[in-house]
Design a binder for these strands. Structure first.
Length: 416
DNA sequence: TCTGGGGTCCTAGGACCC
DNA sequence: TCTGGGGTCCTAGGACCC
């Protein structure tokens, strides 16, 4: 039996742990540049604020109901996520960390799921302050569906493919199923498949023929045949990217180069953090998709002769790419850098026969920067090419402190 | 005026191998 | 008139997830 632990309104719940005054109030967390809603408290959901809504479209609701709008604080959410996962891993052997706010567990089939779920919910809440919804089922897909019910009911829930759960499946839209997105929902409805029950009762071979192996697996999983095992070992990442939108459009090449240097710096530090190197960099820049301009997407792929995670090497290539495609007529809205084709940095790499490696890399300097930034906070030291102050490029008007990861931001409590 | 960031997997088609 | 069979690898594009 699988269980899915899902943290309720996770980003909002993280904020509330350190801001108890936000309990029972409508709260939303915004994406970078305070652009879109990426998390909502139950009170905010009840006001009809949709997920992903741009802030400017819900201003009237924010004003009328005093909705608290917080800038995102991923440093905090990442750390709170670790705490929740640590609690699980201390108690159970079979834990798959699925996302920042979800984990799968596996239990013996005859577990008293209601009791175990209650206990687990209380324990996580006590240790971390984060409320969870817990769903159980014989497959991951059913456990996921059960967690949606659990969230609605406020108690753990269980679903299997037996007839006693047909009612639940009949009242669950096909769009709620894990792996069925907008496109598939539309297409399935054209075939008369509206509910989870409808999808459960079609022929798996039909699903395979008309769609693909993913949909076939979903059908099998809805019927209680597990096709998706628990993955306990975290495979190394296959790509890492750093991308950001600007608060206002940029037309200055130097500023773009400073921005891409920042992202290249972050990228190289991330690579070193997970002991990986890259052989292929992908740099891109685009204008805003929301303005009435013809869409522009500049890109450049750089294939390196040797794998690297050196800051100076990566920044060098990234800035070259900007120089290569920069067009002064374009109002740039978003740029990014991605590393693909990653290699294990602890393994020796194949040397190049004819090409002399450029003497750009300075692993000693990289190491010092990593150490300082880890100890004193991100951005304490950075290469000069990142520019001195371009903070205005990203807006975060209402960001809460990094309560759990920065000594300077510790919460102060006054006792009377 | 203002619209996020970071990932994975699958498929089809092309090019190539023996 | 008729022209094999069995593979791998790479890429671009699409769909999905949180």
């Amino acid at each position: 039996m699988f269980a899915l632990i899902d943290c309720n309104n996770f980003f909002v719940s993280c904020e509330r742990v350190f801001r108890p005054d936000l309990e029972h109030k409508p709260v939303v967390v915004l994406s970078s540049n305070d652009g879109c809603v990426i998390a909502r408290s139950n009170e905010a959901k009840l006001l009809g604020i949709p997920m992903s809504a741009p802030l400017f479209e819900i201003r009237h609701l924010v004003k009328a109901y005093g909705v608290e709008t917080l800038s995102c604080n991923f440093e905090l959410y990442g750390d709170m996520s670790h705490r929740v996962m640590n609690v699980l891993q201390q108690q159970y052997k079979n834990v798959e960390v699925y996302s920042i706010d979800e984990a799968f567990l596996m239990f013996d089939a005859n577990l008293d799921w209601a009791q175990e779920g209650e206990k687990l919910h209380r324990h996580i809440l006590q240790c971390t302050g984060i409320p969870t919804s817990i769903g159980f089922g014989p497959t991951k897909t059913l456990a996921k569906l059960a967690s949606i019910q659990a969230k609605a009911l406020g108690v753990p829930y269980y679903i299997d493919g037996t007839s006693s759960y047909h009612h639940t499946l009949k009242t669950t839209s096909v769009s709620k199923i894990w792996g069925i997105g907008a496109k598939l929902t539309k297409s399935l409805k054209q075939h008369g498949i509206y509910s989870a029950y409808d999808l459960m009762t079609i022929e798996p071979s039909w699903a395979r023929r008309n769609y693909n192996i993913i949909v076939e697996r979903i059908v099998q999983e809805l019927n209680g045949f597990s096709c998706m095992p628990l993955t306990l070992i975290q495979e190394p990442k296959k790509s890492i990217q750093i991308t950001r939108s600007f608060f206002k459009p940029i037309r200055d090449e130097e500023i773009l180069k400073q921005a891409i240097a920042r992202y290249g710096f972050r990228l190289s530090a991330k690579l070193r953090e997970v002991s990986q190197k890259t052989t292929t960099l992908f740099v891109y820049a685009q204008n805003s998709p929301f303005r009435n301009e013809t869409s522009v997407f500049h890109q450049r792929t750089i294939v390196l002769t040797e794998p690297t995670n050196s800051t100076s090497t990566i920044i060098g290539h990234a800035q070259e790419a900007i120089k290569y495609f920069f067009d002064p007529k374009v109002a740039y809205h978003k740029i990014g850098i991605m590393a693909v084709d990653l290699r294990d940095a602890t393994q020796p790499s194949t040397r190049v026969l004819f090409d002399k490696p450029k003497a750009l890399a300075r692993p000693d300097i990289d190491k010092v920067m990593d150490t300082l930034n880890k100890r004193f906070g991100l951005g304490t030291v950075r290469p000069l090419s990142c520019g001195e102050s371009i903070e205005w490029m990203n807006k975060r008007d209402n960001k809460t402190p990094a309560y759990t990861t920065n000594w300077k931001n510790l919460v102060q409590v006054k006792a009377k």
